[in-house]
Amino acid sequence: MAIPIDTADDTEGLRSEAFVVTMPPPRPRGALDDPLWVKLLVSGIGLLFLLLFILLPLLAVFTEALRRGVQTYLEALTEPDALAAIRLTLVVAAIAVPANLVFGVCAAWAITKHRFPGKSLLLTLIDLPFSVSPVISGLVYVLLFGAHGWFGSWLRDHGIHIVFAVPGLVLATVFVTFPFIARELIPLMQAQGRDEEEAAITLGASGWQTFRRVTLPNIRWGLLYGVLLCNARAMGEFGAVSVVSGHIRGETNTMPLHVEILYNEYNFVAAFAVASLLALLALVTLVLKSLLEWRYGAELAATRRR
């Protein structure tokens, strides 16, 4: 049973909507362009500022790290304490990031796909760790689990070590990276609305099917973006883990803490060598983040406009 309809709409639509998704041309500003001297002045000051505060520190890390040559650089990185620090950093991130991933998805699902009272309070609480000093993020766990903390004596009696041990490092890292993924997903899923999920459900999909086949494909790049930022912070966190670590070489030293110890021992080359790995991590994160923004800018737009 085919019912004839006016097919003019088909070609019309293709011309007007489908094929005009290319980038709009840069809009000419013409008479509204700033005068040349203003352009040069603003660009000059802006670039000098960026050079002084961002580019030079980055260059300094790699220069200092390679000051004594590649051989010394590699030796500093393959020294057992450095390797232990790298391993511990990876372990901590491997626990903290997935934990916050599960939390982020749950929080975003509850907040964006449902209506319930107290939602804006919940949003504020999720943001809380962003506004807390890293040192305080570590401090709170010492207050709970430290030798003189609330649960300190109970933990000692049961032989459980949290502060000055790996669990403390994980907890402090989870705390400081807590909002990252939720903060990426919530605006994104808010902008996407509930229509597609409702459509899937009227078509008979279960909740899990709806999430896996409809929601997840729509948020995958935002999710990756959040994981990327969360991971960078988890591996690079210093203040919070510094408070709970106890600085035991080879045992509770993450890479940033190892940098501090080496630096305070005036072993600058080794300190900058380990620091250069972290700087590399930061650069890779920035490159991947920019690639995501350029390639999937439209899908991330809600996230970037915070």
């Binding site: 229509d195 597609e196 409702e198 459509a199 899937a200 999909a205 086949r213 409809v214």
Partner: peptide, 25 residues
């Protein structure tokens, strides 16, 4: 069967997969 005001098509699926969705689930 519900047709949404803004269609709510699954943007990551082809036309075929959109129509097939209800049968697959």
């Amino acid at each position: 069967g519900f047709v949404f005001q803004h269609y709510a098509l699954f943007r990551h699926m082809t036309v075929f997969e959109n129509v097939a969705f209800g049968l697959r689930v």
